[in-house]
Write a protein that binds this DNA or RNA. Structure first.
Lengths: 209, 209
DNA sequence: CCAGAAGTGGAAGAAATCTTCAACTTGGAA
DNA sequence: TTCCAAGTTGAAGATTTCTTCCACTTCTGG
């Protein structure tokens, strides 16, 4: 498999952590597209240091967000164990969006306005079946209208996220209201026509634009 | 007031039209951030020509989109004359989004993911009171729950737009389903808590990020 | 304490856009 | 037909961000 990387020198490891913390903070408020120069300056290191440690932006994103993404996957797993499928769905969406509300960067990653990393792709592969099962059960239990699909919940996710992005700076809680609207919507809308298939979800979260 | 600009020479006017058509087409598929170089190349002119005619990007956007924006304002006015307020609201949103579906650039402008021009600002100033009146009437008629606000419709607009952006390339009609969801949502959600005031709308559409 | 491997800094090259401008071309009034 | 104001072109400078590289510094094992 992959070679075990030799451990970093003490000072190098300290710098690595410093860069990660700094990058995380900057991305929490400014989104994923913070320049390496800004991160290095804020961390007080040179450009060379961040490039040596994270040659590809991908490497930085993975290091920054993989555990958060695992957390979200964990939420989906927890939700899938709910007896009440609708309760599971709403609980999961709300938790996931709360996490995204903490960090603009993480939100962008999970909703992939920008770079869809392998990390995120795997996360969606794991979560989609879980959500699909919940949707299925909710439909059978009469909690959702016939024709509701997992793609509708991807849409809810993206929709609420867009409100979050547009209002984060001035009305941080507004996304909860949007979530109430969107969730009430999937329950009450007529979703019988032309259901989007599951492939739509992938494309949805991989908007290369 | 402003001096009447002398009319352009025939060939210059031809070039101007050519640039406008080219820019419109490019922005319809790629969004507002097309480079001047791309536009000039596609139109077959030099860089200097586009800069001479539209020194600020603002000038180009105004020339490109002002009539479309007037069209949308006209839709809001028509809608405001509906006796059935709910029918007016849904008709307006659907028409507006159909127009945005034709052109990614126009959608970005109307939802101001990017530059909020004076043009768009004025448009919102004109449309907001009209929508507010419709929402008011719909609430009084029992077509919308107490607590529904104009800002909720701004949210619906942005939400459906985000689905449109994420799916335009592969599932062009998906936004209609999202619109059904969002509209069913505002009718059925509990909107009694902490209403966003109207100032939220402006900020919403002026996301400076 | 020392040698050398590991790590660092920041200037400099590369690439992509934006913007200007001086030499050249063209339309149209007289 | 002539002339010149208006218009055009595309190369070149300015900016911004990305990326590399090497002289210099700092750890750490022996």
């Amino acid at each position: 498999m992959t070679e075990a990387a030799p451990p970093l020198r003490r000072d190098a490891e300290r710098n690595r952590q410093l860069l990660l913390r700094t990058a995380y903070d900057l991305m929490a408020t400014q989104g994923l597209d913070v320049s390496y120069e800004d991160i290095a300056r804020a961390a007080g290191t040179g450009m060379g240091t961040i490039y040596r440690r994270f040659p590809q932006r991908q490497d930085l994103l993975d290091a920054l967000f993989s555990e958060h993404i695992d957390t979200v996957i964990g939420l989906a797993e927890q939700a899938s164990h709910y007896d009440d499928a609708w309760a599971g769905l709403t609980w999961f969406l709300e938790r996931q969006l709360e996490i995204e509300a903490q960090s603009r960067g993480l939100g962008e990653l999970l909703r992939s306005r920008n770079q869809a990393t392998a990390l995120v792709q795997r996360a969606h592969e794991r979560m989609t079946p879980l959500v699909a099962d919940l949707v299925d059960r909710a439909v059978r239990a009469g909690q959702l209208p016939d024709g509701a699909t997992p793609a509708d919940f991807a849409a809810v996710h993206v929709m609420v996220g867009s409100v979050m992005d547009a209002s984060r700076a001035h009305t941080p809680g507004l996304w909860r209201r949007a979530l109430r609207i969107a969730l009430a919507g999937v329950r009450h809308a007529d979703l019988s026509g032309d259901q989007p298939d599951e492939a739509v979800i992938d494309r949805f979260y991989n908007d290369q634009t």
